[in-house]
């Protein structure tokens, strides 16, 4: 086995250009568990967790650029949480403190698990993934990045350098259903973000399809029917229709964590709850 501990982004890209089949290791919270369980062999590893350029974040006006090695602990921390609250809420539900200290946003994206907790939030935010290789940098919109169950749009030799998300004016919610509160993989999850300036509501679902799903019809309904000037919660009929449309957008399956019927029901409940919470007095939407 060969392990390269990359210290710079150029080193990491060069190593991957040389050895495109190498396994990329960041926090290792998914990968190392598979290795220890004997489900996966690692013959060649390029570790990214010591690459300083992948750490940290920059704010440029209304855009936040998160280095790929930004950890879940950092996403949930006091500096980032006010900027992208739903991402912080999602990060807080990942594993335990030890896992959140190691787990990275780039790793969550690259693993591309249907249950990846940050993925619905990134989908709702229309995040852009910055992909880097020796040939340069390219941007991949989030809806084209996750291509299937545990598959992504990275070409051989490419790695995730950063993720860019907008800083929106409006409330955000991330809700997750699991079998218990601690250390749980989601059975269903939902991210809802409100863009007050753009007068729209965006909703994405996790664990109910091979890839994160946007509930577009529900978004259109909510965005149309919300009284943006008053900032009041929509009436119960609209909330119910919204939740029904969100459930319609799910494409769940039966598996060991839950049935398709349960998942569809769960996202309907989460949708109702998220919309009500977002438009409750004190949520910051009312002028």
């Amino acid at each position: 086995m060969t392990v390269t501990i990359a210290r710079t982004l150029d080193d990491a890209c060069a190593a991957l250009a040389d050895r495109p089949d190498a396994v990329v290791l960041a926090g290792g919270t998914d990968l190392m568990v598979e290795v220890n369980r004997g489900l996966r062999r690692m013959d060649d590893v390029v570790a990214l967790d010591r690459v300083a350029e992948l750490r940290g974040w920059d704010r440029d006006g209304d855009e936040l650029r998160l280095g790929a090695a930004t950890t879940c602990a950092e996403l949930a921390g006091d500096e980032l949480a006010p900027l992208v609250p739903a991402l912080a809420q999602a990060a807080r539900t990942v594993g335990s403190p030890q896992i959140r200290n190691a787990a990275t946003i780039g790793g969550n994206l690259a693993t591309a698990s249907p249950a990846g907790d940050t993925l619905p939030v990134l989908a709702a935010l229309d995040a852009v993934v910055e992909v880097r290789s020796v040939h340069g940098t390219r941007d991949v919109p989030i809806d084209g990045f996750v291509t299937g169950v545990k598959s992504n749009a990275l070409a051989p030799g490419e790695l995730i350098a950063a993720v860019r998300v907008p800083i929106l004016d409006g409330p955000q919610e991330f809700l997750k259903v699991g079998t218990r509160n601690a250390m749980v993989i989601s059975v269903a999850s939902l991210a809802l973000v409100v863009d007050r300036a753009g007068r729209n509501v965006r909703v994405a679902l996790g664990s109910v399809a091979p890839v994160p799903v946007r509930a577009v019809e529900a978004e259109v309904l909510a965005s149309d029917r919300i009284d943006w000037d008053a900032g009041a919660a929509p009436g119960p009929v609209v909330v119910d229709r919204f939740a029904g449309l969100v459930a319609d957008a799910a494409r769940p399956i039966d598996d060991h964590r839950g049935t398709a019927a349960y998942r569809r029901h769960a996202v309907e409940v989460l949708a109702r709850r998220a919309l009500r919470r977002a438009f409750t007095a004190g949520s910051g939407v009312a002028a």
């Binding site: 501990i5 290792g28 570790a47 967790d49 010591r50 896992i99 200290n101």
Partner: peptide, 20 residues
């Protein structure tokens, strides 16, 4: 669990090389 650079970490899923 050990502390790596002051933060808690699970040492069973971290390569020794990563702690270099």
């Amino acid at each position: 669990t050990v502390l790596v650079d002051g933060r808690s970490a699970k040492s069973c899923t971290l390569l020794a090389a990563q702690a270099d």
